[in-house]
């Protein structure tokens, strides 16, 4: 009888342990927000992404002497549409400061709902994008960066370490009424080699549509 009980314990204990561990798993609908920390090295710098021109690029190739600006963006988000009039001026400013720029589309879950490569090509043409716009396949880069929404900005220095993260500025609705041009200030500071302040900011945006 005692032998039987001991034998049974060998089955019961792992089951109880397994069930206890299940309690720590995130439940459906929940995703941890773990944005890349300031000072962290860029992840997947050598991962090839397809750009709207058909060219295959890596983040390392897009980066320039002073750094790299990564903007998680998309085609279907009204917040992107509001901020989009600042995209080309920012690309120009980045270029003047020897910083490369790329927009990545992470919306893998909506590739058949306005976020396909064809839709991206159309958007880049219509909005006359003066920077790279590439598809983040399976949202791998967004996952690695801890990006959560569009637009979501990550600015890296010449060593590809994160120096600024967050918002473009403090007024999506009107470029004219911006009081704090966070990203432009960060680009200028990075170009001039002075400290960026603030290093992190927040703004509202559309949640990334992760792969199913």
């Amino acid at each position: 009888m005692r032998v039987m009980t001991k034998k049974r314990l060998w089955y019961v204990i792992p089951i109880i342990l397994g069930m206890s561990l299940l309690a720590f798993l995130p439940i459906k609908g929940e995703k941890a927000s773990d944005e890349l920390e300031i000072g962290a090295k860029i992840p997947f710098a050598d991962l090839k992404v397809e750009e709207v021109s058909g060219q295959m690029l890596t983040l390392k190739e897009v980066a320039r002497e002073k750094g790299l600006l990564v903007n998680f963006s998309c085609n279907t988000c009204p917040w992107v549409a509001r901020w989009e009039d600042r995209y080309n001026p920012i690309a120009k400013l980045a270029k003047e400061n020897k910083i490369g720029m790329i927009a990545l589309n992470p919306n893998s879950g909506y590739r058949n709902r306005g976020e396909s490569m064809k839709d991206m090509q159309e958007r880049a043409r219509k909005s006359n994008y003066q920077f790279y716009y590439a598809l983040d396949k399976d949202s791998r880069l967004a996952q690695a960066f801890g990006a959560t929404h569009t637009p979501h900005i990550f600015l890296f220095d010449g060593d590809l370490k994160l120096v600024y993260r967050g918002a473009i500025d403090d007024n999506a609705s009107s470029a004219k009424n911006v009081e704090q041009p966070y990203l432009k200030n960060a680009i200028k500071a990075l170009g001039a080699g002075v400290e960026i302040n603030p290093k992190t900011t927040k703004s509202l945006g559309c949640t990334i549509k992760w792969p199913a």
Binding site: S33, A167, N171, T201, K202, L204, G205, C206, T207
Partner: peptide, 19 residues
């Protein structure tokens, strides 16, 4: 009002993504 004070008033853990 502006996004940042709104987001921070609701939750320090919130990055700003909706919903």
């Amino acid at each position: 009002g502006k996004d940042q004070p709104f987001i921070e008033a609701i939750s320090k853990k919130w990055s700003g993504a909706l919903p």
